[in-house]
Design a protein around this nucleic acid. Structure first.
Length: 815
DNA sequence: CAGTGAGCGAGCTTCCGCTTGACTT
């Protein structure tokens, strides 16, 4: 009995036992790793980022009291904060180990206040790499919370709230409801809109590229081909023809050969933005996809932190890379390097993105995870490898003309160095035709070229942004942070400012002149140009909003606004300015502009008059309305109600013609009948569709809703029905209740009584028996009611979820 | 998933940056 009591007492004491040390970091994965390094005297917890923020509703900044921020702990953080408070009470010393940047410092400060910590038993520590030495070193060198840096963060936070919450309502009033504007997103949208304008205004110019193909026979009688080009283009066809005429009797002489050794170095290790770009170019991943995979690798301990702007590698990493390279490829391939940040405003709280254990060339995991890891591994290794040594040969071929001389470039890799492992890819790169040249001597006379071509080439408009190239641009401008690139790209698409689209190419003719066997032949050929995939295109709303914002708020929409304001945040961080003064200065310039913009009488809806409807004689125009761009026949003030029609996805306010607009009013259209019901083609929220017997069938864009035939509609309906049939993998009867195994967007699943149940990955859905299904349902049985309870908990939370779901559904539908 | 758009006016929307899960048919 006594023993029992003793055991019991010990157990109770054990649970409330005072920990000597509580360490708080931002990320739970980090907490786990650090916990291992520090041993049993330390409890390591995570704050999961910020624990407190400006109150969600309203401005929540007291403009009459020196911009005092009104903070709150968000609902989903309350439980966590309670736990941290408890742990802090039980600890002798609390170590605040959030990141060493503006946001991290603020997190530490909020923790200090919310957990009601005392200065004497609180320590602020920082480390940039998760290694035992770095952490022990940090513990030995604690400091106080840097109040100036915290002030800089508060200034940043308050400014963003003011800009966002004062600009957005102006848009609701003047353009359309629920729109958003902000320091980051509005400039991001501007980039896309400005680029689109550039493309629209671009006038393509053509000129002629002259290329000669020679056959060179070496001393052993082996013949090879040599391609040479004029470095300049020839403007007109007549001039090109004249040049070819001249070539008929010309002598082609190698007038110069220059050989230059070139060294090429590897790219810096990955940071968030470069990882996103390379994963897009090399693996075709979207920015979101890359970040989600990287997160998984990070949580599995396979790579370092994925949201970073630092290219720095730890000593440990550099040494390991050196060892790995020397052992697998030889010492001459190793060249340890340190890279320095070039990004504007980089805060460098973390290391570059690299494999945690560089000695692991591959990892376990699904295909995409392996691909991304492989990319990170190669980039990291390459960054620690020797320069590639290349020999570039430039051959000049004189053809007796004073201005025009042919040039051939050749490259020979003398030592591959880092190229052995990895080469950075380029966006829209045209493959250069540098190759190995046949042996040539200066003064050598070449035999007559096999042919000389003059091909008409056109200048190209600047490319539209892809998700990844937009991130690159944002980073260059210092706009946004590694943690916000992916969300920003999503926001502008969810808010319907930009769409990711595949662009159809256009056809055009071009001329070629070919000199062969002393004859010049002219042909006209056709090429497709401008076709592009997954590029960001602005919506009409974006164009109108951008025009409005750039007119009334040119400073905020300036590409350099963030960079300029960052300088002021730096002044605050260095203690040279009070944050309240900085904000006051900003607000006194900004707020009157908001007032002015709200005062203007007219709405900014991008209205454009197209002409007159020949049927009614009324005016036809287009504009932005509640649900996007519409065409309208007749004025709103007219006695007779105006007619409305939405613009189609590929139509724009600025470019639509009267005819195209009038076509929109030809729908809905009765095409015929099928199974005794009318077949009607109409345009709905999701584009053109067929209505039949209460059912809707989407019309693929290969069909024109104005001309699609009765037969085609029937085919589409039958195809859809067939697809529906394939949806059902299996059907069971469970005591009168139907259990179905279905094929869904996220793979097979089980449906019973209107509730869906997940099937574990790797299970063969076809082979599932009724018993298997019952088991799966039983295992997840507690999930279904819990889901409902959660949804009714708070109205706010549920509407938010609904909005999110809607957005994600839409996204996958586009796929 | 599938027909809104004006105007009336209640009540709502909206920012950026730090973090993960929960969830999707």
């Amino acid at each position: 009995m006594k023993d029992f009591l003793f055991f019991f007492a010990k157990k109770i004491l054990g649970t409330v036992k005072m920990h000597k040390n509580l360490v708080i970091v931002e990320s739970p994965a980090k907490a786990k790793t650090i916990g291992k390094f520090l041993g049993k005297d330390f409890v390591v917890k995570s704050s999961y980022g910020h624990i407190r923020d400006l109150k969600k509703s309203g401005m929540s900044i007291n403009l009459d009291n020196n911009y005092e921020p009104i903070y709150e702990i968000p609902d989903d953080k309350k439980e966590l904060v309670d736990d941290l408070i408890k742990e802090a009470k039980n600890a002798e010393i609390v170590w605040l180990a959030s990141d060493e940047d503006r946001e991290g410092e603020a997190i530490a400060w909020h923790l200090f206040n919310v957990l009601k910590l005392k200065k004497e038993n609180t320590r602020r520590i920082v480390f940039h790499e998760i290694t035992k030495t770095a952490i022990l070193h940090a513990i030995e060198n604690p400091r106080d919370i840097d109040d100036n840096l915290v002030s800089a963060q508060q200034a940043r936070r308050v400014l963003d709230r003011i800009v966002g919450f004062e600009l957005s309502p102006v848009l609701w009033k003047k353009v359309r409801p629920s729109l958003s504007a902000g320091r980051v997103q509005s400039v991001t949208v501007r980039l896309i809109v400005d680029r689109e304008k550039e493309i629209q205004n671009f006038v393509s110019e053509s000129s002629f590229r002259i290329q000669a193909i020679f056959t060179v026979v070496d001393s052993k009688g082996k013949s090879s081909t040599l391609k040479a080009e004029l470095p300049q283009r020839i403007k007109t066809e007549a001039e090109a023809r004249a040049f070819l005429e001249k070539c008929k009797n010309a002598e082609f002489k190698v007038s110069d050969i220059s050989v230059k050794p070139i060294k090429r170095g590897p790219a810096a290790p990955f940071i968030t933005s470069t990882l996103q770009q390379e994963a897009a170019r090399k693996l075709g991943f979207s920015v979101n996809m890359t970040m989600s995979l990287a997160q998984q690798l990070y949580e599995a301990g396979q790579i370092t932190y994925m949201r970073t702007d630092s290219v720095n590698l730890s000593d440990l990493a550099i040494n390991t890379a050196k060892k790995v390279i020397s052992e697998s490829m030889g010492e001459k391939y190793s060249q340890p390097r340190r890279f320095t940040a070039k990004a504007k405003g980089a805060q460098e709280a973390h290391e570059a993105i690299r494999p945690t254990y560089i000695e692991n060339q591959t990892i376990e995991g699904n295909n995409n995870l392996q691909k991304l890891y492989d990319l990170v591994w190669k980039r990291t290794i390459a960054s620690q490898m020797a320069d590639a040594e290349i020999e570039r040969t430039t051959v000049t071929i004189d053809c007796g003309d004073d201005t025009y001389k042919f040039v051939a470039d050749g490259e020979v890799v003398k030592f591959d160095g880092f190229l052995k492992v990895y080469q950075e890819s380029k966006e829209n790169s045209e493959d250069s035709n540098t190759s190995v040249l046949p042996p040539l001597n200066k003064g050598m006379i070449l035999s007559k070229p096999k042919e000389i071509d003059a091909t008409e080439r056109f200048t190209q408009h600047p490319p539209r942004y892809s998700e990844a190239s937009l991130v690159h641009k944002l980073e260059e401008l210092g706009i946004g942070r590694p943690s916000t690139y992916a969300p920003t790209i999503s926001t502008i698409q969810n808010k319907e400012y930009a769409e990711k689209r595949d662009l159809e190419g256009k056809k055009r003719n071009y001329q070629t002149l070919v000199l062969k066997d002393n004859q010049i032949t002219e042909t006209t050929e056709t090429e497709t140009y401008g076709a592009d995939r997954k590029k960001l295109v602005p919506t009409d709303t974006a164009i109108v909003v951008n025009e409005f914002l750039t007119e009334y708020f040119p400073d905020i929409l300036d590409y350099n606004f963030t960079a300029k304001i960052e300088n002021k945040f730096d002044d605050v961080a260095e203690g040279n300015m009070k944050w309240e003064d900085m904000i006051d200065d900003f607000y006194h310039n900004f707020h009157p502009l908001v007032e002015d913009a709200s005062q203007i009488s007219e709405r900014k809806n991008g209205m454009r008059k197209l002409g007159v409807d020949p049927v009614s004689g009324k005016e036809v125009f287009v504009k932005i309305a509640r649900f996007g761009a519409i065409a309208q026949i007749g004025a709103t003030e007219d006695e007779e109600k105006p007619r409305f029609a939405s613009l189609r996805k590929n139509q724009h306010l600025e470019t639509i013609t009267l005819e195209e607009a009038l076509d929109l009013f030809k729908l809905p259209r009765t095409v015929g009948t099928y199974e005794d019901s009318e077949l009607v083609v109409a345009v709905g929220r999701f584009g053109p569709y067929i209505k039949h017997n209460g059912q809707a069938y989407s019309l693929a864009k290969t069909y024109d809703p104005l001309t699609v035939t009765n037969e085609e509609c029937i085919k589409i309906i039958e195809a859809k029905r067939e697809e529906q049939k394939n949806k059902v993998i299996n059907k069971f009867d469970d005591n009168g209740v139907e259990i179905e195994v279905l094929n869904g967007r996220f793979g097979p699943y089980i449906a019973k009584d209107g509730v869906n149940y997940k099937i574990a990955k790797g299970t063969d859905a076809k082979s599932l028996t009724l018993d298997d299904c019952r088991k799966i349902i039983a295992e997840q049985a507690d999930k279904a009611p819990a889901k409902k309870a959660k949804a009714t908990k708070t109205t706010k939370a549920s509407t938010k979820t609904a909005a999110k779901t809607k957005a994600s559904t839409k996204k996958s539908a586009e796929k």
